[in-house]
């Protein structure tokens, strides 16, 4: 059986507003990142893949199954929405048991998988804790446990690390990395660090369009020679911001080390080309595609 998600020319309208514009992607096993600003269309694409939104045009197949066969799609997909919780008075165990029942799992299988999942997401000690007593990070982990409970071939996670503290974010990313070994995991985020740390392949979205689709390394490579660093007097910062998209600034007394994007050699004395990080590469991608203008705010 085909182990890929094929998205071809998908479009989606909300009234007159176009949320997805001719989106085409081919996603295989492993962790795939979807990077973009808030409102770029990531959640719409995630929801469309999870069968929560109808498309206005195009086609999607998940492991060879057309998206119109929602029952089959739901049984092979695990979904963790951006904002979610569970019945507050239920315990972790009860919540998973309830959702497992909704997924048609037998009692024996549920018991076995719940034990396995709670250990995997490190909530085994908290299995009898009520949902309302869980921290944000614990809730996210419980969310992953419910999404994986029926052992789906595809896991869709939408902005899972937003609002988590750094430690919890790392733990969560590692967990996703582990589960991505034997399935397709799509991670949607606006946090570049998540993609950098966890994904080999990623797509960049903006205004419902795909700007880049491929390896993260390719995105970095494409930004080589476009990222510059210079030490300037702080009073010139406003002018620099008007001329170039600035990706970083470190203040030092009267001077500032400024990091910025320029397609050619910049007109700033002492500017040197530097090795781009993924954040720079992402901004370069937006810049190349006309999503950021010179002098415009990032």
């Amino acid at each position: 059986m085909d182990d890929r998600i094929e998205i071809k020319n998908v479009s989606k309208f909300y009234g007159k507003k176009q949320a997805l514009n001719d989106v085409s992607l081919s996603i295989g096993k492993g962790m795939f990142g979807l990077l973009g600003r808030n409102g770029a269309g990531k959640t719409t694409l995630m929801k469309t893949l999870a069968g929560l939104h109808p498309m206005s045009g195009g086609s999607i197949t998940v492991c060879g199954v057309p998206i119109s066969k929602v029952k089959e799609i739901r049984s092979m997909t695990g979904y963790l929405p951006q904002e979610f919780s569970m019945y507050p008075s239920m315990t972790c165990e009860e919540c998973l048991d309830y959702l497992g029942t909704l997924s048609g799992m037998s009692k024996g299988l549920r018991r076995e998988r719940i034990d396995e999942m709670l250990v995997r997401v490190n909530l085994d000690e908290h299995r009898t804790k009520k949902v309302k007593q869980l921290s944000g990070g614990m809730k996210r982990r419980l969310g992953i446990a419910q999404a994986l409970l029926h052992d789906p071939k595809v896991l869709i996670v939408d902005e899972p690390t937003a609002g988590l503290d750094p430690e919890e974010r790392i733990r969560f990313r590692n967990l996703l990395g582990e589960v991505a070994e034997d399935r397709i995991v799509i991670l949607s985020t606006h946090i570049v660090g998540d993609i950098e740390a966890a994904c080999e392949k990623a797509a960049v979205m903006n205004d419902g369009r795909i700007l880049h689709n491929g390896k993260v390394d390719d995105l970095l490579r494409a930004a080589e020679g476009m990222v510059w660093s210079a030490v300037v007097e702080t009073r010139f910062l406003t002018q620099i911001k008007l001329l170039y998209p600035v990706t970083g600034m470190v203040m030092k007394d009267r001077d500032t080390i400024v990091r910025f994007i320029s397609e050619g050699t910049p007109d700033i004395s002492g500017a040197e080309a530097v090795k781009p990080n993924l954040e720079d590469a992402y901004i370069c991608c937006l810049y190349r595609n006309g999503c950021i203008e010179n002098g415009g705010d990032i």
Binding site: A50, G51, L52, K71, R74, S75, T77, G78, Y79, P81, E83, F84, S85, M86, Y87, P88, L99, L102, S103, G104, G143, Q146, H150
Partner: peptide, 22 residues
Amino acid sequence: SADKRSKMEQLIYTSSISSVRL
């Protein structure tokens, strides 16, 4: 309204149970 209040609606929507059965 419990599903919506508990923000559990989408988790239930994406489960494989049929709408008629649930």
